[in-house]
Write a protein that binds this DNA or RNA. Sequence first.
DNA 1: CGCATAGTTGACTACGCTCAACCCTGGTGG
DNA 2: CCACCAGGGTTGAGCGTAGTCAACTATGCG
Lengths: 200, 200
Amino acid sequence: MQFLTTEQLPINLQQRIVYQILDTGQIIFQQHEPTEAVFVVECGRVRLVSFSEQQIITHYFVEAGESFAETALFSDTYACTAITELPSRIAVIDKELFQQALRDYPDLTNAYMNQLTYRFENVKLLLELRSIRSARERLLQYLIRRIEPSNRTLTLQRPLKYLATELGLSAETLSRTLSHLEEQGLISRKQRSITLNEDW
Amino acid sequence: MQFLTTEQLPINLQQRIVYQILDTGQIIFQQHEPTEAVFVVECGRVRLVSFSEQQIITHYFVEAGESFAETALFSDTYACTAITELPSRIAVIDKELFQQALRDYPDLTNAYMNQLTYRFENVKLLLELRSIRSARERLLQYLIRRIEPSNRTLTLQRPLKYLATELGLSAETLSRTLSHLEEQGLISRKQRSITLNEDW
DNA sequence: CGCATAGTTGACTACGCTCAACCCTGGTGG
DNA sequence: CCACCAGGGTTGAGCGTAGTCAACTATGCG
């Protein structure tokens, strides 16, 4: 899956992109603010969160090369708050301009729909996984769905604790569950990669 | 939010829609099968599920008037299995024809992206809610997000047990939690509608 | 070498699930 | 008109699993 990048945009739009250089912990936009732009993380990392009185819920980490707030195009307000996790360089693409570009460039529309579809399926998968009570089963299903069929291995790009939040588990439970699965010979671990041993 | 309906399609595509009349419990398509079409429930209800050895996970109920498997357009295989929950009439729209229509009718593309965006935000909300451990908080957040600001009331279209699965709670826990909130005066209930009493 | 962060392990707790019994409602048929 | 039934909803008791808190180890980086 290729993410939407600034290079894919028509030249005249590329020229009108604004870049923001941000430090760690800076807010790019807040939930409920009127939408004005969509964004691409050129480098760094952005965290998307929702606030409520008692809780802060992180629901996605946007890595370098990924776009975010794409749904701003069709809503009046942002559905979450975006904060930089690292010093980051962010491309800001004006909403109106982007909409115009979508009208003018069918290929861009196609790439955009493709990406939106991909994201949607992704979130749906995570939601499905949350319906599985047992940490063990949830983790196994995640591995099954995410693993390269060729080498039966998943290489993690980020620390385990990110995987834990993605799965809706505490880091401790994930650690324990991985250990158990390893003891039982169902998986092997080596640094950042996890291999499924048995056939399913 | 208006869902994609068959009436919104260009006439020449409408004429090529095939209709399936199905009884309860019939399979429309299976996970991993190659995608051939997108669908609209004209009447009845469809349940989207995922299978795995131990579990069956229902992740959405498609009501009359809603489309489903829209993401089939951009994937080679279906991401879930669709089963009728009631006797249903289903419109089957060939994938290739629909893609052609998207290319030819920008308004349709717009409606499609709009719907996809809406669905995406919807699923994201549910995923966020699952990050909230406490049944009480999860339910409150759900209510806050779903309620009409005008009358502070949410009217349920379906039995409570559906709400329970949407929230990832057992029906019993949901029932208890609602009772507690009512005792504490935070909400009022009347038949199928729930009203938030206090200001937030 | 020292610090910060990630990961692991242990003990305890709490919350929601499960199972079960029961109530309530609406629909159906005699 | 009542009897019956099915499904949804409510309530109770007990259990189990994942969270929490804490201490400790491992790893990486300046």
